[in-house]
């Protein structure tokens, strides 16, 4: 499979993400325990739960940002030990609530940043290859942001900023997208259009997405599977 011009070399199980008996917290204060999650490639998963239940922490563990106190995490068939190898690193896009965009940079610059690791000196000088710019513009067009390519991201609406973060994940060629409450602050129309993009990513590129969300009706509409993180346990809703 070709993902944005690069061959997908990921091998391993049919699961994009596997967590086995994962626990996080302190000895006397466990946030969650025995979390088992198997996400098939191309599927969209919703994780719900009350604030403070550990949804964001679980995403960060899968992202390799923090280590669980117990259990094992495997992404694209490779075991994650707190940090990813560089090869695997770019296969996983993490979109936090703050989105992680570079304010004061344009939409196009933010999307092109996904290619900076390929040509760091070009990235430093801002001299991008034509094929990278064309690729970024094509992605922006597919999500309806091509006309705002030269706008600074801090001038965009919440929904537009969310799309830029997703466009960057697409440009990155991510096979797994971890999105922390991407639709919480959006109206229903905007929320649906964002979730449509995740769904389309799964259909076209077999990109799996794990989305933290609160709206059960939206989750029922869009998620292939949904889980509830409550009382320190992750339980499957459907």
């Amino acid at each position: 499979m070709i993902v944005q011009g690069r061959e997908d070399t990921s091998v391993g199980s049919i699961y994009a993400v596997e967590t086995m008996d994962v626990a996080y917290g302190y000895t006397n204060n466990i946030l969650f325990d025995n979390v088992n999650l198997m996400v098939e490639r191309g599927k969209s998963i919703a994780i719900m739960g009350r604030s403070g239940s550990g949804k964001s922490t679980l995403l960060r563990i899968i992202n390799g940002s923090i280590r669980p106190i117990r259990g094992m995490v495997r992404v694209l068939g490779v075991e994650v030990y707190g940090r990813y190898s560089n090869g695997l690193r770019r296969r996983v896009a993490y979109i936090p609530q703050s989105l992680g965009l570079v304010d004061n940079a344009t939409v196009l610059e933010n999307v092109l940043l996904a290619r900076a690791a390929d040509s760091p000196f070009r990235a430093l000088l801002g001299l991008w290859r034509k094929e990278d710019v064309d690729g970024a513009m094509s992605i922006l067009k597919s999500i309806g942001l091509d006309e705002k390519a030269r706008s600074k991201v801090n001038m965009l609406s919440g929904g537009e900023r969310q799309r830029v973060a997703i466009a960057r994940a697409l440009m990155q060629g991510a096979r797994v997208v971890l999105a922390d409450e991407p639709v919480s602050n959006l109206d229903q129309d905007n929320a649906r259009s964002i979730l449509d993009i995740f769904k389309e990513m799964g259909r076209r590129n077999s990109t799996s997405s794990i989305i933290v969300m609160h709206d059960r009706a939206l989750a029922e509409e869009y998620a292939d599977e949904a889980y509830m993180l409550a009382d320190k346990r992750l339980s499957r809703l459907w």
Binding site: R60, N63, S65, N86, R89, R90, V92, A93, Y94, I95, P96, Q97, S98, L99, G100, V102, D103, N104, A105, E109, L113, A114, A116, A117, P120, A123, L124, A165, R168, Q172, A174, D180
Partner: peptide, 23 residues
């Protein structure tokens, strides 16, 4: 979280620094 999001792009430190300066 911002660092982690940019970190998932596997940016070399100079590019990471440039992005943070811009930010």
């Amino acid at each position: 979280e911002h660092y982690e999001a940019l970190g998932s792009l596997a940016l070399p430190w100079m590019v990471m620094a440039k992005a943070l300066f811009k930010h």
